[in-house]
Design a protein around this nucleic acid. Structure first.
Lengths: 197, 197
DNA sequence: GGGTATGTTGAACGCCGTTCAAAGGAGTGC
DNA sequence: GCACTCCTTTGAACGGCGTTCAACATACCC
């Protein structure tokens, strides 16, 4: 493939991710349309399929950005490594909550995209998740000094899933969820309980 | 409307719910097709829209059955009211987990169906949820004898959301979830922590 | 039995994601 | 600069979707 072609494709790829990201942010994953993307990008519908496998591939690319940004923002909330472990856990969870409420549609897209098998989870996803889990497991290790690595991993997953459940049902404003204005308080309650406070 | 017509419609309604339930159970909500339903029911596609607002209405009817069945099964797991409160909570959560793993597609449909606004949540949904929340709040009230009703409601939601999160990510086998075979153990860990054990 | 109101039907509509034959442009040799 | 080839891009077309509604069938009333 010629150099110029490669550049044109790379440009189109970025442009499409930009447009898709804006669309998902504003109207949610479900309102992505191949024709709409093509029109905004000033290309043919078929061109999308020259740079992405299908629309799911494009959504995954958007999710890559979202996940990375989320990791950075969550990390930033626990910079004070001298705070007690449980306070750092609460800060991480609040960072997660804050990201979800600030970017509801992009955040939901992270979980709504179909991952047909466990095999086709992209590498960047595993890496980003590992980063997030490491951030969580550091304070956890202080709370459970006797736990081995696999125990820590398990508890990290349990904690993450719990907080995720509260944030998910709460921010969706499901009638089964915690009211928005109480989520922070309830997450703190949950984490303090787990920490034995 | 003539009696005969009413009966014919009621019959078709039940028949369609049966067919849709089987389809969702076996292949998930996303594989429901108006034409497929009509063919299996032996009616015209348009007939579906004589007895349901749209396919979402049909899915909601299936969800009504599912939710009711889930309530019964979860209730049945806490018949021994003499067990310690925390053990009853664990039993309820395990009932929830068991229902979700035994009926993955039907269970997921409960949460995947779009409820555009908070206003159009059906009455039966609110009622069933109330039943489930009552079951949870009874043991909780024993653990927190000083909490008032709104506090109990809040903690019920927090607990439910947490367990839901663990069950959701775990049963979907998300790489962020708790491994299937450890879910029960981790739910017990979480609930015992909250109970202060 | 005839006339009207009501119920049912399925072809048609307007979408959708995706494809692929055809048109266009880039690279190469002279 | 030109002609030829090969690769890229294009957008009309395809198959499938949920939903509608004019035409047809049926039930009901007098």
């Amino acid at each position: 493939m010629a150099r110029e072609t490669a550049k044109r494709r790379a440009d189109l790829r970025e442009k499409l991710i930009d447009i898709a990201e804006a669309e998902i942010r504003e109207n949610g994953m479900a309102s992505l349309r191949a024709r709409g993307l093509a029109e905004q990008a000033g290309c043919a519908v078929g061109a999308i399929y020259n740079v992405f496998e299908d629309l799911t591939g494009l959504i995954l690319a958007v999710n890559g950005r979202t996940f990375h940004r989320m990791g950075s923002e969550v990390s930033a909330t626990v910079e004070d490594v001298n705070a007690p472990a449980v306070e750092r856990l609460i800060a991480i969870a609040n960072g997660y909550l804050h990201f979800a409420t600030a970017n509801p549609n992009l955040w939901r897209a992270l979980f709504e995209v179909e991952m047909s098998t466990q095999a086709d989870v992209p590498d960047w996803y595993i890496e980003e998740l590992g980063r997030l889990f490491t951030i969580i497991s550091l304070p956890l290790a202080e709370l459970y000094p006797d736990a081995d690595l696999s125990d820590l991993d398990l508890r990290t997953r349990t904690l993450f899933s719990s907080v995720h459940g509260i944030v998910l049902l709460g921010t969706e404003q499901r009638i089964s969820g915690v009211p928005l204005e109480r989520i922070e308080q309830q997450i703190a309650f949950l984490l303090r309980s787990i920490a034995g406070e």
